[in-house]
Design a protein around this nucleic acid. Structure first.
Lengths: 162, 162
DNA sequence: CTTGACTCTATAGCCGCTATAGGCATTACG
DNA sequence: CGTAATGCCTATAGCGGCTATAGAGTCAAG
């Protein structure tokens, strides 16, 4: 008892600022303070933070984690909704995998448009400029509509937790 | 010539605000204005916006699109870097697919922990609480580290463009 | 003449953090 | 004892790619 925030961060593999953020978001309880105003955590908090981190890695967002924590703290109703939640996530993951596979085939088709080394008339630019149906799957291709494809280009480098 | 922003939005399948946003970001040129201060676009702008949208659907971020547009406007150098860019995206997409597949197996494992209908001792909660190795792949499982898994839970519903 | 559809600007919010600035507390070393 | 390196504190702003809201001007139809 009396774990400081840096130690907790180390134990849970997340950042100090993230812990304070979770506190602000109401996922972690307001902790005791030492006489010099440092946050002091207990073993309970360690477990709770681990739970939160594990949920995050399973793709849960903070609102869902809040619900799960509320249930965990006070499991008065059936947990069927948790099964449904997980099923919903599985379906969403499957949707994303399908979208990414589709995207991949598009990108591969793009690559074939340009053999490289050329100084003008890049086939990739040309293909991206064309208004016609896509060479991969025609006018009904879902890439022609706004689809919930994750913007992989903007994902941070993992930088594996030290 | 003289396409108003609403029409352009309709033609390109994106929102009016998004067009203004692209202008602010320097992807679309500052357009002419009608005498009542409405933006007026040309066929060139239509093509440019289509190009941008198509790039977005291929997972390019705005910085990358800026580069592609600069090249398109003034293709003085070799386009090899565009091939590399697309290859980089393919690799990233593959990484995400692998991560999502892994995540899916985790979620499915979670589902098996709880047959449902029970009023306490939910197996999913218990599994997420446990500190031990994950039931799917042991302590070395990448889900135990911070991995660049897209937060599918927070993705907006596609709401397919009208 | 009012209603409704469209346009304009400016600002704030979304998510889950991450970064920065400025300051206090503790500890190690000389 | 001084001082430098940590670690902790608060508060605020920024990331990406939009989306939402507020408040106001413009225009055509009924």
């Amino acid at each position: 008892m009396g774990i400081k925030i840096g130690k907790l961060a180390e134990m849970s593999g997340c950042q100090v600022v993230t812990i304070r953020y979770y506190e602000k978001e109401g996922l972690l309880p307001v902790p005791d303070r030492s006489q010099n105003n440092y946050r002091l955590y207990s073993e309970n908090d360690v477990e709770r933070l681990h739970f939160i981190r594990r949920c995050r890695m399973h793709g849960m967002n903070l609102a869902e984690i809040r619900q799960l924590l509320a249930f965990k703290d006070n499991p008065t109703v059936s947990c069927d909704w948790i099964n449904s939640l997980v099923e919903k996530h599985i379906a969403e993951v499957e949707r994303q995998i399908a979208a990414l596979r589709h995207l991949k085939s598009h990108l591969q088709a793009l690559l074939r448009q340009c053999p490289g080394g050329r100084h003008e008339g890049c086939g990739i630019i040309a293909t991206l400029t064309e208004c016609g149906d896509c060479p991969c799957c025609g006018s009904s291709c879902s890439l022609h509509k706004a689809e919930g494809t994750p913007a992989h280009g903007s994902s941070k480098s993992p930088e594996a937790a030290k």
